[in-house]
Computed example of a mutant assay.
Amino acid sequence: MNKTDRLLAIVLELQRKGVLRAEDLAAKFETSTRTIYRDIQALSEAGVPIAGAPGLGYSLMEGYFLPPVSFTVEEAVALLIGTDFVEQKFDREYGAKAQSSKRKIEAILPESVRRETSRVRSTIRLIDADGQIGGLEKENIETLRQATLEERKVRFHYSKNRPEANGNRHSVRTAAPYGLVLVHGSWILIAHCELRQELRHFRLSRMSDLTVQEDRFMFPPDFNLQDHRPAEDRHVLVRIQADPDIAYKVKESNSFYMEAFEDHEDGLYMTFRVRQPEELLRWVLGWGADVVVLEPESLRNRVREEAEKMFKRY
């Protein structure tokens, strides 16, 4: 980053963060504190009202605001591709806002930048490998987003991919929504479940009859969605071997449960981590005779049982 770009970036960073120390700015822009001191002096001499407080850092004088700056071609392309992603993966309201944002960005670009941006974008296309989000799921995103902001509980029917101990796959849940996370192309609700009395993860695609309740909730003071990491409950290791001819296809499948793989002359050896071995049953069967379960024996037996059932059907 050259000096001119760094000076502008410093002003924008102070405008965004409020107060920053020279050490913070040096770390942000990967330079020395001595250089930051010189930059602050240069900005002050140029008329930018920067105040410095010993021990606290630098800040812009109250009321100072840097007007919108022009975008480079690369910045404009990044923003416009971002609007494409929002249209694909968010609810209808944000999809509409993404479209209006795209028009505004294109409108303020200089003609030369707009032409070059259009040329670059013509060589890039964002295709959702996981498919477009369905209408019901988009409605759920919007409902849950509003419920989270209003701190209202929600109620919904939920279908699990495997039955509970009592054999039931379906249940009715009431939960306090803490936030939404996009994982491997699927939206997940992070919420405190009243039925389980703990923080749980719910796939929006498995929800139905979602309603917002009058009851309110309070966010735990120590909860931060950006720092949240789910408790690890996948403790079962599964070893699978794939024939060399399909090794590249298996790698491209990018299974959520795959933890490691090794290439050998006789094929690809993979390690998966799951809650129950049956979670990989359909995945294994989908590859036919080109993959073989090495362990555990319980999964080998389940594959054998399913193969025998299929043989009887044919």
Score class of each variant (00 low, 15 high):
190 I>L: 03
137 E>W: 03
122 S>W: 09
141 I>T: 00
131 G>L: 00
108 I>G: 11
148 T>D: 06
93 E>F: 11
133 I>N: 04
138 K>C: 04
168 N>K: 15
170 H>K: 09
183 V>H: 12
143 T>N: 09
131 G>T: 07
143 T>C: 10
99 Q>M: 07
196 R>A: 04
150 E>H: 13
91 D>H: 13
147 A>S: 08
124 I>D: 14
163 P>D: 05
150 E>N: 12
145 R>S: 13
192 H>S: 05
138 K>I: 01
142 E>M: 11
192 H>N: 11
185 G>V: 05
106 E>T: 09
112 S>R: 13
166 N>L: 01
158 Y>N: 03
186 S>M: 06
175 A>W: 01
143 T>Y: 05
128 D>L: 00
137 E>R: 05
151 E>T: 13
170 H>M: 02
141 I>P: 03
169 R>W: 08
91 D>F: 02
98 A>N: 06
93 E>V: 10
198 E>M: 04
173 R>A: 12
113 V>C: 10
182 L>K: 08
159 S>R: 12
157 H>G: 12
193 C>A: 06
176 A>R: 07
97 K>Q: 15
131 G>P: 02
129 A>C: 06
152 R>N: 11
90 F>G: 05
141 I>S: 05
170 H>D: 15
174 T>L: 05
92 R>Q: 13
175 A>F: 01
136 L>V: 07
